[in-house]
C-alpha cells in the first residue's frame, strides 16, 4: 500500500497521460484538411472501437474464450434485444443488470 502523498502523484500522473491522447488530435486535426480516405477511416472508428471494447467482455469467462455457461454472453441476448427494440440506453442498462443477476442466480 502506497502512502497517501504518493497516491496524489499517481492520480496526477494518470490524469496527465490520460489527457494527452484526448487533447492532441483535437487541437491539431480540427483545422486540417484531411484526404478523403483518412476522413472515411475516422468515420469507421465509432463502430469498430465499440465492437472491440464489447466482444472481449462478452466472450471471455475466467480468462478464456467461452461460448457456453458464460453469464456475460447469455445476459447479452436479452440486453441486445432490449436495446434493439427500445433504442434507449437507460432501459438497456437496466435489462442488462437484471439479466445478469437472474442468470447468476440460476448458474451457481
Amino acid at each position: 500500500m502506497e502512502t497517501s502523498s504518493s497516491l496524489i502523484w499517481v492520480i496526477i500522473g494518470m490524469a496527465i497521460v490520460t489527457y494527452i491522447p484526448r487533447v492532441i488530435p483535437m487541437i491539431y486535426l480540427s483545422d486540417k484538411e484531411l484526404p478523403s480516405w483518412l476522413n472515411e477511416w475516422l468515420g469507421y472508428i465509432p463502430v469498430t472501437v465499440l465492437a472491440a471494447l464489447l466482444f472481449p467482455i462478452l466472450f471471455m469467462n475466467d480468462q478464456q474464450i467461452s461460448f457456453s455457461q458464460n453469464p456475460n454472453l447469455l445476459a447479452a441476448i436479452p440486453t441486445f434485444i432490449a436495446g434493439f427494440l427500445t433504442k434507449n440506453i437507460f432501459v438497456t442498462v437496466l435489462v442488462g443488470m437484471g439479466s445478469i443477476v437472474g442468470i447468476r442466480l440460476f448458474m451457481i
Binding site: 440486453t79 442498462v93 439479466s99 445478469i100
Partner: peptide, 16 residues
C-alpha cells in the same frame, strides 16, 4: 447487484 454489467450493457446499446 449486477453493477458490473452496466458497462457491457452500455457498450451494447451504443454499438447498436
Amino acid at each position: 447487484y449486477g453493477l458490473d454489467y452496466a458497462l457491457p450493457a452500455m457498450f451494447i446499446i451504443l454499438l447498436i
